[in-house]
Design a protein around this nucleic acid. Structure first.
Lengths: 198, 198, 198, 198
DNA sequence: CATGAATGAGTTTTCATTCAT
DNA sequence: TATGAATGAAAACTCATTCAT
């Protein structure tokens, strides 16, 4: 049981970047067996079908990113520092993120939307989780009276996600982190002008 | 010539929404012949392969959108009105855009990034064209002294694209135009606080 | 169209004995392509899936047998001669029938019963058609007053089918037409003692 | 030894109806482990391969049926009563027989004929055993001078098997025991008109 | 002995592309 | 130029069997 759990995790870890780079429909079982050096039978021994593996791999990628983001948040103290950690997270880790295919939520959201129906709910939940993480930092800042008390924290959190994903999109398209920087600059401007209490 | 050009255009027009909804790799020739009621031979008589058609279909979708945006811009006079037209474009046409699969640039950019290599250049050019369209409105506003003279118009145009695409992403994911509205509100805020001359 | 119909028929004719010999579930697409010297794609171009081909092949086998039986019936005149033609049909053609796998109705009925659900209806209809063919000969004999007027023709026809299939079963199992002869002897006895008017 | 013999028997008893219902080729090891709640290793510890188990399961089914038939025969005294017991055996137990997939000899004979070669001999032996059982009743009747002394007992026994199996075939195909009754009526008629001494 | 993870050859099916007509 | 039958490589998935633990 321990053994099979290990294999299952190994398959997920190994294929998560594959799926993120090539897309969920576009990653074949041949790609998966090549990457894992396991047989098809072994993959199917651990997952009922490709969709189940794809979803597990996406969940893993999303959770990985969320965990890393939360660690960045928890490594600092004040709500403002936490917010800054969120803002710089993508820019700081850009090289690694790009290498494993960019933001898994962006990729999966676009693919899931009209084709990969089975991913839809998981993607939505991942976005919600991300938005909630940001919103709770904003809430803490409001409570601590560092941030403006009129702030619609959920909506602002969603706005942060939009700007970050928009930045990721252009940064990947142009293979240039200049666009990532534009997004960050704007987020910092928003913090100063719309979030911080005056 | 006229006839074959007509057929070619008919194929492009008919398949463009198909590709946008289901993805470029995921749309099969069977889908294409079913949608067009044409034979495979007819498709291959007009395009050397599926990739060429996919690219033509994407270009068509992107151009359609750009043309519609330009029409919206040209229907009003002042740079500020033009900018407002840009901002409201996606929100106003959201129902139609959603039905045909959402923003083709967003979809193709994500798919092209690591998989559909052949689309990459076309996607980049389409984004550049979009950014330039916005930038030229900003430039006109600066020239007309309606907009702040310190404005980095290219960067601001890219920021507009990011926020719009981020809004589209969340609006499609949650099937809710509330998020589209959040994006628009922010763009309006940016116009007021960062673009308009004080 | 003519061409594809030819291919379709060729596939059916070629695979019908295969299915009858090896069973419907047990005949693989590799067997089918080997026997027809056609590609898998060609098979799937003519049939939506293996089940559809299997059913078409069974129908063909059943119809072939029924047609041959009817020809035997029509080649003679009196109801009694026709009945004798039915009785000797399997014994006379035993060599050929054995070579192509035995009675397709027997084989398919056994396989269809609990496994190949999709064949069930077609098999039932084939048996009904066979029983009706025999019953109509019996009816004609009754009408012509050669056969006893008290005859339950449907039930007697079914009895004929039972005895023939029972004979086929043992003849194939023991690879001996002695059992086929036993069945025929009994049918002749039934004709004399239960069917012919006294 | 006792333990492993018990396991072996348990596996055979549990899988015999499975094989009879779904067919020998069509019953997978997954079906077998699911039905027995045993591991694959456990199955392979008790049988060298699936074919060996299939044959053992068939033998078990055949023997079960033969034993039940013999019990029915031995529960009555006179050869005529014994013959009647044989005739009514299938009709009386039809519900149970149908539930476990019908007559295992019929099923296995059809499947074994051209596909499952390994079953062939066992099937033939089972039919022989059945025919002998009936023949010995007939022999006893002849010896007791109840039955006609000219009777070819082996051939008549084979005829009984044919009619019974023919009846089973149509009864299962049409899911109607009316056909079983037709077979029985005919057997009774044969007893009266061809077997009993006049 | 028993387990069940792993295998690899097998299964059915799909699909972009070609080419004789 | 148009057709659509045919292709063959590749897709997802299954399954009897093995073997390290």
């Amino acid at each position: 049981m321990a053994k099979s759990d290990n294999t299952r995790l190994f398959i997920i870890e190994t294929t998560a970047p594959l799926f993120n780079v090539y897309g969920y429909a576009n990653t074949s079982l041949a790609d998966i067996t090549a990457a894992t050096a396991l047989s098809k039978g072994s993959i199917y021994g651990n997952f009922t079908n490709k969709d189940e593996l794809a979803e597990a791999a996406f969940s893993y990628s999303a959770k990985q990113q969320n965990t890393a983001l939360k660690e960045a948040i928890e490594s600092v103290k004040t709500p403002l520092d936490k917010l800054n950690a969120i803002v710089t997270f993508f820019a700081s880790n850009w090289a690694a993120i790009k290498k494993t295919g960019g933001c898994p939520l962006l990729n999966a959201a676009v693919e899931a939307d009209d084709a990969a129906e089975y991913l839809k709910k998981t993607v939505k939940d991942s976005f919600t989780s991300w938005i909630n993480t940001i919103a709770s930092v904003l809430d803490a800042g409001v409570k601590a009276k560092t941030f403006s008390k009129d702030l619609d924290t959920k909506q602002t959190a969603a706005l942060f996600v939009m700007i970050i994903e928009g930045g990721v999109l252009l940064a990947k398209t142009y293979n240039s982190n200049k666009h990532m920087q534009t997004a960050i600059d704007q987020l910092n401007h928003i913090i100063k002008s719309q979030i911080l209490k005056k």
